[in-house]
Computed example of a mutant assay.
Amino acid sequence: MAAIISIENVEREFGSGEKRVRVLKGIDLSIKQHTLVALKGRSGSGKTTLLNLIGALDQPSKGCIFFEETDIGQFSEKERTEFRRKRLGLIFQSFGLVPFMTVEENVEFGLRVAGTPREEWQTRIKDALELVGLTKRAKHLPFELSGGEQQRCAIARTIASSPSVILADEPTAELDSKMAFHIIKQFKYLVDTKKTTIIMTTHDQDILDMMEHVFELEDGRIAHEKTEAFS
C-alpha cells in the first residue's frame, strides 16, 4: 500500500541562541494510506508538534513532509489553508466548537467550511452524530454538554466531511473507557469503509493496545514502532 505521508529528516526548533529548543531531532516516518496510526510519548516528546507539522499548522526547521509526493513545507500560507480545508480533518484538544451553535449546527459549519454540497448535509450530520452517540443531544449548545460530549461533537464535525486524512490530538482524553473504545472502533470503521487515514496522539495504554500502528516518540526522535493487526 502506498504511503500518503512521508516524513524525511524533519527537525523543529523553537527560539534562538541559548534559548533554542530542539523539539524534533530528525524524524523519518512513512504512513500508509488507509491506516490507523497512533503517536505516543511523554509530555514534551514532540508528538503534538509532529501532528501540527503534518497538518501544515507549522513548518519544519529542517527536512521535508510529503503528502502524496507533494512537499507541504513549501506551501504558501494560502496553500496551507486550502490544503487543510480540502484534504484534512483536525480534532483539537480544545474542541474548537462555536459556542452559539448547537451540536448539529457545529457539524454543519464544518461541512460548509469543507465545501461539502448542501444537499449532502442532512445525511452527513445524521450519520456523524449517530456514529459518536450524540443524536439525542443534536439541539444542545456546547455549554450544555459535558466535556466528553463536546469532544464527541468535535469528532463528529470532523468525520462528517469525510476527509482523506484525520489528525486527532488526544481525541479520547475526555471520554470514559467504554466510549473511548467505541470511538476507536468507529475510527477503524472509517479506515476500512471510507478509506480514511487517521493519525492520533494518545497516552492511554488501553487505546494503544487496540491500535494497528504505534510510533513512540522519545526526546524528539522515533524510539519504537509497533505494527500489528487490529482486533
Rank of each mutant, 00 (worst) to 15 (best):
G133R: 08
L167I: 00
S164M: 12
P117Y: 03
R152I: 02
K126A: 14
I155W: 02
G147L: 07
F109K: 07
T158L: 05
T123V: 11
H140L: 15
H140R: 14
E170A: 02
C153K: 02
L131V: 01
Q151S: 06
E105K: 13
S162K: 12
G133D: 12
T158C: 15
A138V: 14
P117T: 03
T135Y: 00
D169A: 02
D127V: 12
L141G: 03
I159E: 09
A138T: 06
F143W: 08
V165N: 02
V107M: 09
R118I: 08
I155T: 00
S162H: 12
P142W: 09
E108H: 10
R137K: 13
R137Q: 13
R157N: 04
I159S: 11
L167R: 00
T135V: 12
K139G: 06
A154M: 01
E119W: 00
R152S: 10
T116W: 10
S164V: 11
A138M: 11
W121K: 04
R124C: 08
E120K: 10
Q151Y: 05
G147D: 07
I159V: 15
E170M: 03
L145C: 11
S146W: 09
E105R: 13
R152H: 02
A138E: 14
C153G: 05
I155D: 05
R137C: 04
A138Y: 10
A160D: 06
V132T: 03
D169V: 01
W121N: 06
K139L: 08
A160F: 10
R137A: 13
T135H: 04
P163H: 00
H140G: 06
Q151L: 03
R137L: 06
R124A: 06
A160N: 05
F109Y: 14
A128R: 04
I155E: 03
L167E: 02
L167Y: 00
G133M: 07
K139Y: 11
